[in-house]
Computed example of a mutant assay.
Amino acid sequence: MRQRYASSFGAAAAAYAAHRPDYAPAAVRWALEPAPGPRVLDLGAGTGKLTGTLVELGFDTVAVEPDSAMLAELRSTLPAVRALPGSAEEIPLPDASVDAVLAGNALHWFDMSIAGPEVARVLAPGGILAGLWNVMDDRVDWVAELARVSDSAAIGPRDTQSNWRDATKELHLPRADAGMGGAARFGSPEQEEFAHSQLRTADSLVATLATRAGVLVMPERERAAALGRIRAYLANRPETSSGEFTLPMLTGVLRTRRS
């Protein structure tokens, strides 16, 4: 099931590039704050949403992405960035060649039993591994109701803090006593979240939600019905029914340091 979801994005690569949000710069800075140097790998880079933020912040960035359609979008948008085909389980970089590995809305797709040692291999001593996630801020009433209307398929987990904690357990992120190839490789993870936002219209928000894996894998009739419910809801909310609005979001971060 995970592979089916993870491989669903290529067919929607152009829409993903057009509609998905970037990442809160403050979140990226926090993720990289302890990094020993400026060399950063964006792993599972998709169409370059996180890559672009890294470049804007001045980091020496290389991107690795397994899906050819997503990689083509990244190369088109950021032609000056070194962008390579590859995966978290087989990273096409030399040992100790980067100071940080970041994954934007991608860490949960990795097979961490294989990816963990690979990440450790390419990281310099003291290097940082960090996962970042953009989610809608469902502490806002209309966003929480949108999650209910869509049965959460297009929105994701309602409890953002629990999402980060669950990710730590489910993804076997490195801890002092488990995961990522052993206790000596990584320290205990830290987590933080940062306010973020995106200007949307009802149509562009529907288009954004249509790029979520939970929607992409739906049968066509079910997907059309789900997006129809969302469109009807947005048309009847004062916050979203007329013109452009600000979509409240959070960028969550989990980071850990290589020993």
Rank of each mutant, 00 (worst) to 15 (best):
A18R: 04
R258I: 05
A6C: 08
I128M: 09
A226H: 14
G156V: 05
A13I: 01
M70N: 04
R223N: 03
V143S: 05
A120M: 09
R221S: 15
R223L: 04
G44Q: 08
A213K: 03
R165I: 13
R4G: 12
P21E: 01
A27C: 00
N134E: 00
G37R: 10
Y5H: 11
P238Y: 06
M136F: 09
M249V: 00
E90V: 13
F194A: 03
L199A: 13
F186V: 05
M218T: 08
T201A: 05
A178G: 15
M180N: 07
E56Q: 04
K169W: 12
A96R: 06
N236Q: 14
V217I: 09
T251E: 01
V101I: 10
D138E: 14
A202K: 05
S259D: 10
D99T: 10
A232T: 15
A26N: 00
D60G: 11
P117S: 03
D111V: 05
R231V: 09
D67M: 00
P94D: 06
W30L: 05
S188C: 11
P38W: 07
I91M: 10
T47M: 01
F59R: 07
E222K: 09
L209C: 13
D60P: 11
A144L: 11
S76G: 14
Q198I: 02
N163L: 15
E239M: 09
P38D: 08
S162I: 12
P125H: 01
A80D: 10
N134K: 01
W109N: 03
A15V: 00
A207D: 06
G44H: 08
R82G: 13
G126S: 03
F245L: 00
G187T: 08
